[in-house]
Simulated scan of single mutants.
Amino acid sequence: MASQMIVNSEHGSIVDVPGLQVGHFTLSERLTGCSVVLAPEGAVGAVDVRGAAPGTRETDLLDPANLVDKVHAVLLSGGSAFGLDAASGVVRWLEEHGIGFETGYGRVPIVPAAVLFDLPVVRPGDDPKARPQAEAGYAACQAASTAQPAAGNVGAGAGACVGKLFGLDRCMKGGIGNASVRVGPWVVGALVACNAVGDVIDPASGQVLAGARTADGTGLLDSQRALLAGERGKRPLPGTNTTIGVVATNATLTKAQAKRLAMSAHDGLARSIRPAHTPLDGDTLFALATGTEASPADLMLLTVMAAEATALATLDAIRQAQSIETTGGTVPAASAWQPSDKISHL
């Protein structure tokens, strides 16, 4: 009898994969932060970058042709390139706990990282130069656990926004979200921080959940339709967006197989973000395989599960987000914004 797929986006997450923990840290000085996925026993790691403007750390070592086959944490951070500094705090925390790659001269923690651009999101009274630094990464590790992670305006998703193709004044709130999918003995979980230049779509209905609003503020524009119809707006600078995340499984995989998992996870972004993988985004997804399930891996099934979990985690990020007040005005969230019936259908 065939196994039934069990999807869990409201109460599931990447920590449903045995061997992983998640911790968030959100700055009080400005709406930004970082999130860490810890793999204390190590996990086979891979990465796939599809956006044209990524901000990353330690991604070359994840190439299947390179030596190190396991990582000990993955960091997702706000703060643009400044946020990469938070990885130093993760490294320090892991070293203090005796976790890392054994060199004979000490253990060296392997911590790949990716950042998103949230620098324009400043609330009244915020310090615009506050960014996640080493202390933030360390604090995220201290907060890490196997409990269901928070979602929405926390960690790497604190300052995330979506729908920016027609100007920041018409965007909506993004965030960070969770999901997991189970089939038979395998589980695939995802953690996604959505800061896309495009809109977020419900793949099941085709409905735009959050994205660029119409110029009069009465509805959702549908950025892709607007572009195809010839409409042009205020384009954000390249690299000022990005969706980043981690997809993980309990399966036993090689680095090459984990790479395939990361590649397939991007299908989930393409289903839930429109347009995705643009020249203005730095879309980056990491894959982790903890190997706690010894059964021979069904890679075909796992790649399908990875795409599904990633899409669901992206939707969860948007549904859990909360509206914010910035120096430029209100950035509404899908959970609170009530547009009129005057939706633009180009």
Rank of each mutant, 00 (worst) to 15 (best):
S3M: 14
G12L: 12
E29R: 15
E29H: 11
R30H: 07
T32P: 06
T32S: 13
L38C: 05
E41D: 15
V44H: 13
D48M: 09
T56E: 01
L62Q: 12
D63T: 09
V71H: 03
H72F: 02
H72W: 04
A73P: 03
S77H: 02
G79W: 06
G79P: 04
S80I: 03
R92P: 00
F101M: 10
F101D: 02
F101C: 06
G106M: 02
R107L: 14
P109G: 05
A113Y: 00
D118H: 04
R131Y: 13
Q133T: 07
Y138F: 13
A143N: 12
F166A: 00
D169N: 03
C171A: 07
I176V: 15
A179F: 03
S180W: 07
G184W: 01
G184Y: 00
N195W: 05
A196W: 05
D202V: 06
A204N: 07
R213F: 03
R213K: 11
D216N: 13
D222M: 10
S223L: 14
A229W: 05
G230R: 04
K234S: 05
T242Q: 08
I244P: 10
G245K: 05
A248Y: 14
K255Y: 03
A256S: 14
Q257Y: 12
L261T: 15
S264A: 15
L269C: 13
R271A: 11
S272G: 13
R274D: 13
A276K: 05
T278R: 11
D283H: 08
T284G: 06
F286A: 05
A287M: 08
G291W: 11
E293G: 08
P296V: 09
A297I: 06
T303S: 14
A307I: 08
T310I: 07
D316F: 08
A321M: 05
S323Q: 09
S323G: 08
T326D: 08
T330H: 05
P332V: 05
A336P: 02
W337T: 03
P339Y: 09
D341A: 15
I343A: 11
